[in-house]
């Protein structure tokens, strides 16, 4: 290849003049939008605060070390609550997401005109709203505690599991489904024998994957009052007790890593 010797020249000739112009305009537009965005941000920023951030950071870091290991003993219960929010929340989500997914999938929906749009709407609404916002709403209604967190996790997960599952249902092989239909099976039996066995492994993978994400999310739901490790974190930050904050951060970090490992193992086993 003689490309290196003519590097600049070749690069320049890669697009004809019209294409080149379009590309440059797009780039210019992108840069302009970015500069405008950044000006907006900097206009709303107190730069003196930003400039002394390194000092602040060093100060906080100093207070975080050494971590208050004694405090770790108290974290047992919040950790248990965090696990429960994620696990029960995922289970609850599965109960609603599975029928919704079958209603939303083109090849299994009972009615294209009513059930399908309804199911798709539920899935989209659930997906667009972060579990922290769900928790905010639910804490307001149900009061602070693990219950609100569990339901928030479930609400957010319905859309996630529902979407991935209905896509998997739509991708199933139609030939075995035809074969089951040709035996005179009812539509329920066709789904149970033709579709369900095909999507089971995918479904298990999705559920475990979401459980793993939920562990991470449930560690912080306490920040808005929904129980678990986040609640302790909120209290410690409020009291400016940084040596405790570092313990909680380490606990969150460890929990997330362990759950990621577990989920990866299970997913490898089912597929």
């Amino acid at each position: 290849m003689s490309v290196q010797t003519t590097n600049g020249l070749r690069e320049w000739q890669r697009y004809d003049s019209k294409q080149g112009l379009l590309r440059w305009t797009l780039w210019l537009l992108g840069v302009a939008v970015f500069v405008w965005c950044f000006q907006k941000i900097s206009a709303g920023t107190e730069w003196s605060f930003v400039l002394d951030a390194p000092e602040q950071g060093a100060d906080i870091f100093d207070r975080m070390i050494p971590p208050d290991w004694e405090y770790a003993r108290v974290l047992g219960r919040p950790l248990w609550d965090t696990l429960n929010m994620a696990t029960l929340g995922t289970m609850g989500a599965v109960i609603f997401a599975v029928p919704l997914a079958f209603m939303a999938a083109q090849n299994t929906t009972p009615s294209v005109r009513f059930a399908r749009p309804f199911a798709l709407f539920c899935i989209v609404a659930s997906r667009s709203i972060n579990s922290v916002i769900w928790a905010l709403v639910l804490v307001m209604i149900l009061g602070p505690g693990v219950l609100a967190g569990t339901i928030a996790i479930a609400f957010r997960s319905i859309g996630f599991i529902g979407k991935l599952l209905y896509e998997a249902i739509e991708e199933t092989d139609h030939r075995p489904v035809d074969a089951i239909a040709s035996t005179g099976a009812s539509s329920g039996q066709i789904i149970a024998y033709g579709v369900v066995p095909q999507v089971t492994p995918v479904f298990a993978g999705i559920a475990v994957f979401r459980w793993d994400i939920n562990i991470r999310e449930s560690t912080i739901l306490g920040l808005v009052g929904a129980g678990g490790l986040g609640l302790e974190l909120n209290a410690s930050i409020g009291n400016l007790d940084w040596s405790r904050v570092s313990v909680i951060l380490l606990a969150i970090f460890a929990t997330v890593i362990v759950s990621e490992w577990v989920s990866a193992r299970i997913r490898k086993a089912v597929t």
Binding site: R175, P176, A179, S182, P197, Q198, T200, P201
Partner: peptide, 12 residues
């Protein structure tokens, strides 16, 4: 009864 080209068994 019907017998299919690529067997059309439910694999799992």
């Amino acid at each position: 009864g019907m017998i299919f080209q690529e067997f059309a068994l439910v694999d799992r």
